[in-house]
């Protein structure tokens, strides 16, 4: 196929793969809900949840979950996460780094931005959605470091096998 035809084909495919483009307007992920004066606070647990629907209650991912992807105007997949912090003093502004790795260990990208947190249940605070537009592979490891805690969770879309685990990942200090 000639290069020019390949380009047209690519553009056409990208256009049809754009379910988040109502009336042709591509979805643009909002900027992180950032803050300054971050603190670690006193944390005992960190959970990572799906953030694509910002109005939904916090729903933690489990190993092997499939996040809700949105395809942008250029055909790249993205999704959002929310973090829930639990402890005696969860901070109102938490320093965090979120990164995505494929199975071979290739880091697809990371975001290091302090995020505001909002009161959830007693002793728990939750962030607003943090959009990850990293060119996400089908199977990947999501790594989050928030305050003094870090967590890894394996997600996939599509997944090779049905989800085997129903428990959340361990939180490591």
């Amino acid at each position: 196929m000639p290069v020019s035809a390949q380009r047209c084909f690519l553009v056409a495919i990208l256009a049809t793969l754009c379910p988040a483009c109502p009336a042709g307007v591509p979805f643009v992920p909002p900027a992180p809900d950032a803050c300054s004066n971050s603190a670690d606070g006193s944390l005992i647990n960190l959970e990572i949840g799906d953030g694509t629907d910002a109005s939904a209650p916090f729903h933690p991912f489990v190993q092997g979950d499939s996040p809700s992807f949105i395809t942008g105007g250029q055909g790249l997949r993205m999704f959002a996460i929310r973090l829930r912090l639990q402890g005696s003093q969860p901070p109102t502004c938490v320093r965090q780094t979120t990164a995505i790795y494929d199975e071979a260990g290739l880091n697809y990208g990371q975001i290091t931005t302090p995020l505001k947190t909002y009161a959830d249940a007693p002793g728990a605070r939750t962030t607003r959605p943090l959009w990850l537009a990293f060119g996400i592979p089908d199977q990947f490891r999501l790594h989050v470091q928030a305050g003094t805690l870090q967590r890894d969770i394996h997600l996939c879309q599509p997944c090779p096998l049905p989800s085997q685990s129903t428990a959340g990942n361990d939180t490591a200090p």
């Binding site: 591509p26 643009v28 992920p29 942008g72 105007g73 250029q74 790249l76 993205m78 990164a99 880091n107 697809y108 990208g109 990371q110 975001i111 290091t112 990850l132 537009a133 990293f134 060119g135």
Partner: peptide, 15 residues
């Protein structure tokens, strides 16, 4: 736009 964001995130990870 998300491709630019993805590459910026990748740079943050490795550069």
């Amino acid at each position: 736009m998300e491709i630019v964001q993805a590459l910026q995130a990748r740079s943050l990870a490795v550069d």
